[in-house]
Nucleic acid binder design. Structure first.
Length: 475
RNA sequence: GCCCCCGUAGCUCAGUGGUCAGAGCGGCGGUCUUUUAAACCGCGCGGCGCGAGUUCGAUUCUCGCCGGGGGUACCA
């Protein structure tokens, strides 16, 4: 089949037509034509001339005339080609194009008898020959593997895919606008790190040849960003990829986009207020019209109450493994009897609470064991000032009042070290550079991480992270 | 990691233990100067993911592998 297309390519060259010209100056988006002439009556003509460029998406021939659909990033426009306007050679040549070819078209705007805004072609140029057939035009491209591995075909064939990734871009832009407007500095910290930290996760390891040492791809930006707070930048954010060497799921991709921001003199209640404002702002900016109500303020519930409400177990009244296992059993919930107390708490949260949190909800005050960088709670012993934020049955943000006491931080690293010794592959490695930065003095600080892919899932109503990542990790 | 499901033309999909495996879109040829999944006429352009087995004979049955999807675990 592509022999036909290659044959056409050769014939074009033989006739002195360049199938891959270098540029096509003066192109405007087809949306401009729709904006300017959407109000024409059916059958009404204009003199308004336009030059557009795009992919040939459909063709309807009529002998001495034809309709061609040209698609660019802004939309689709119908082109009307007429033998009497173009002349025999140009007309024949235009009709011999293949679907999928890139074309430039000059023409004047008019509305067809059926009321479709169109461009009456006065001239055209082949901008690039397509040697492979495009996906089927009616059903589009549905094969999930092809959509992920060859996203260009998905974008070409499926309007929703284009709309979605434009939406993702608008989410990112809105997030930046919100932070920039509050005086946050966008910064870039190392992706290649001699020591990973800032989250409980297994890293990807790589090797630098000249230095002959192993380096890690970051699992979080947290520790470097807080060193910038120590340095006095006071309000910083980073929006970029983190990497975690873990399983894939509808909510997990090994590389994912994380937003973290840190604010001196703030605590976790400030971060909660900022998060709900930012997300509400983003929802407004992108014209969100889904089922989730992002209007502020969002529901706030302590971790204890959330588990009590949904599972009927009071984790704070059962502060050791045995008691908690027994209490859960009393509610008909069987937990892993080999797990630690914080592990059991987390199990209750993720299994019995998280799936039920469909409207935006802050879950506050976590056990210290699960949060090595969060500051101890000002009134609840054994807890830290931390929240996770949930919506659509999914966690999408995590924040705390940052631990800035270097001696306490050292103790936390020691605890993590004991977990590592017990075989926990996700415990935090000891980071002396970070401790020394804290010893320099870090102001009271609030910090937060937001899973951007998950935020886009919420904003677009998608339930798989692979749908919102352009090129998701494949086997 | 485990469980379930899937893998047929460029795309979307149907189908059968045995004559040349089908449809729509796409492609090729033809009719048609306002159509829009244009319509109409003509032409299959693939051998059924890969390998082995069962069988007189497999795309269809079995096993393994590869790829994918979903679920579950882990992930927090």
């Amino acid at each position: 089949m592509d022999e036909d297309r290659r044959g056409k390519l050769e014939r074009l060259r033989e006739r002195g037509i360049e199938p891959f010209p270098h540029a096509f100056p003066g192109v405007g988006p087809v949306s401009a034509i729709h904006e300017a002439h959407g109000g024409l009556e059916a059958g009404e003509d204009t003199e308004a001339a336009y030059r557009v460029g795009g992919r040939l998406a459909a063709r309807r021939g009529h002998g001495k005339a034809a309709f061609l659909d040209v698609v660019d990033r802004s939309g689709r426009i119908q082109v009307h080609a007429r033998l009497d306007v173009l002349g025999q050679d140009s007309f024949d040549e235009l009709l011999s194009l293949d679907l999928g070819d890139l074309v430039g078209v000059d023409g004047t705007a008019f509305k067809s008898r059926r009321g479709e805004l169109s461009l009456k072609a006065t001239g055209w140029t082949l901008l690039a020959k397509s040697l492979l057939p495009p996906p089927e035009k009616f059903h589009g491209l549905e094969d999930v593997e092809t959509r992920y591995r060859r996203r260009e075909l998905d974008l070409m064939a499926n309007e929703e895919a284009r709309t979605l990734f434009i939406l993702r871009s608008r989410v990112l832009a809105a997030v930046r606008r919100w932070l920039d407007g509050r005086g946050f500095l966008e910064v870039e910290t190392p992706v290649l790190q001699p020591l990973y930290g800032g989250a409980l996760a297994r890293p990807f390891t790589t090797h630098h040849n000249a230095l002959d040492r192993d380096l890690y791809l970051r699992i979080a930006t947290e520790l470097y960003l807080k060193r910038l707070i120590v340095g006095g930048l006071e309000r910083v954010y980073e929006l970029g990829k983190d990497f975690r060497n873990e399983g894939l799921s509808p909510k997990h991709n090994p590389e994912f986009t994380m937003l973290e921001w840190y604010e001196a003199y703030a605590d976790y209640t400030d971060m909660a207020a900022e998060l709900e404002q930012m997300v509400a702002f983003v929802a407004t900016e992108i014209g969100y019209d889904g089922d989730i109500d992002f209007a502020t303020p969002w529901r706030r519930v302590t971790l204890r109450d959330a588990i009590l409400d949904e599972a009927g177990v009071d984790v704070l009244a059962n502060r050791d493994e045995e008691q908690l296992l027994e209490a859960a059993r009393g509610r008909g919930i069987e937990l892993d009897s080999t797990d630690t107390w914080p592990g059991l708490v987390d199990d209750l949260l993720s299994r019995h609470v998280e799936p039920k949190l469909s409207r935006p909800t802050f879950v506050l005050d976590y056990p210290v064991e699960l949060s090595p960088f969060a500051k101890g709670h000002r009134s609840e012993p054994g807890l830290v000032e931390r929240f996770e934020c949930f919506a659509g049955g999914m966690e999408f943000a995590n924040a705390f009042t940052e631990l800035n006491d270097p001696d306490e931080q050292r103790t936390r690293f020691d605890q993590q070290g004991r977990l590592t010794a017990q075989g926990d592959q996700e415990a935090q490695p000891y980071d002396e550079d970070y401790i020394r930065a804290l010893e320099q003095g870090m102001p009271p600080t609030g910090g937060i991480g937001v899973g951007i892919d998950r935020l886009v899932m919420l904003m677009s109503g998608r339930c798989s992270i692979r749908e919102v990542v352009l090129f998701p990790t494949m086997r």
